[in-house]
Design a protein around this nucleic acid. Structure first.
Lengths: 241, 241
DNA sequence: CGAAGACTGTGACGTGGGTCACAAACGTCC
DNA sequence: GGACGTTTGTGACCCACGTCACAGTCTTCG
């Protein structure tokens, strides 16, 4: 089986990500995937460890096997903005791998994280063999482009609270667990981390969050966050308060 | 020859764009390109005419044969932001053509413009036949992604004057003609058009432009714009004033 | 358990840049 | 050469948000 190798104990195996379950390998001959998996490298990053920096040369694509990766950029002044936070099963770094250019963003681990990396050579061999993989790659790139366009729009024509609402919606949908109390966000982030993500100041974010808590749109539960009124949050993201 | 057909007088022929000169067809068998050119459609838009709107279904890619196309998005409040201005030889609309999704941005003509369009069917036939075309498409998408990322950064962590400086640099480099007086921007835009592009107000842009004119960074010559100190403009784009 | 460090909460204050409301200058068409 | 529409120029005013400067509160670890 084309498992992403677990570098830890056997009990970790269930949390591991199988390559063949990834969208990018959907419809690909299992033997091809297995071959890629055999040549793939594994790597573990400690909390806070840098995987790559803006401007680094690049020749591999990564898959988050278990953990959490933050993708970011820095301004000339040194301010960091988070572009995305990736969890198990996410693929990243494909642009550098595909075109061989330098990295346009940095990547680092938010906690101890296991990764699988696939080298350009390996990937291109498979690309030459399987036309379906080509389609999948094109699809992936298109999806990325659409996602970036949407975020671009957010950045240019939405105000801070709208951007925050957008992120909250994303957190609730992609990292939320429905409970009697509301949608619990499993992906726990500090206010500073969220602030970097929404490109606002920590203090400003705090104030908005507390206002919304008062209005019962969400509950703040020591570090955790429970979304109560996703409808309204979405509305704010789209049209403002 | 795989010319983009001129729908106008023969004198327009010299301004026409040949498909085989486009990056996306670099290294492709001429007969394949010719076949695509034969199946391509031509279309002329009047000044201001809408080619497609956000949310439209899409099944074609376009090439600007002669004229000028503006790509834009709208906020829920109705404010338009220009994402790019395209001139002869530019390719656009490829994402929708490739993945069949709806358009994420609108496109309209800034002046009377001739376009060539290539349908998904036609393109995919060629894609199946020529693996080099696949590489070219992947390259194009990667380039787009890098460009969008850069603009994304501009939007989130640069201030208005920096964004303006960025656009000026782009105008000077990609649409400029070096003359004794400085780099003359051939692509003439009104201040309103530039303001939409830099996501600032027309009034604000005006003030910055006049300040820079006083500082001899540029000359404003009734509608035209001449960049005198590109070094400094680039510096401002990167580090602020 | 107690201290140090991280995280959260909140007000005072400053400012970039948008909106409004004009006036002046420029085109272009009868 | 008026006259009307477009573009440019400029000041008064305003507001969203960032920065600063704290004070609480939670965690974690010796």
């Amino acid at each position: 089986m084309a498992y992403v190798q677990s570098s830890g104990a056997a009990t970790d195996a269930d949390r591991s990500v199988k390559l063949e379950t990834l969208d990018i390998f959907k419809g690909i001959d299992p033997s091809t995937v297995e071959q890629i998996a055999r040549k793939a490298q594994n790597r573990t990053l400690d909390k806070g460890e840098l995987l790559f920096n803006v401007g680094d040369t690049s020749d591999a694509l990564y898959v988050v096997a278990d953990g959490r990766i933050r993708i970011w950029t820095v301004s000339a002044a040194g301010a960091e903005v988070t572009l995305n936070v990736l969890t198990n099963g996410a693929v990243f770094g494909e642009i550098g791998m595909l075109d061989g250019g330098v990295r346009t963003a940095g990547a680092s681990a938010m906690l101890r994280t296991r990764l699988t990396s696939i080298a350009r050579r390996t990937f291109y061999e498979a690309l030459d063999r399987d036309p379906q993989l080509v389609r999948n790659v094109i699809d992936l790139l298109c999806r990325r482009l659409r996602w970036t366009s949407a975020r671009m729009e957010d950045a240019t024509l939405r105000q801070a609270p709208q951007r925050l609402a957008r992120i909250l919606g994303h957190l609730a949908r992609d990292h939320g667990k429905t409970t009697p109390r509301g949608i619990e966000v499993v992906l726990k982030l500090t206010q500073s981390e969220m602030a970097q993500w929404t490109a606002m100041s920590r203090e400003g974010l705090n104030k908005v969050l507390n206002r919304w808590a008062e209005e019962r749109l969400l509950i703040q539960d020591r570090g955790g966050l429970i979304v109560r009124d996703l409808e309204r949050i979405d509305e704010i993201a789209e049209f403002g308060e």
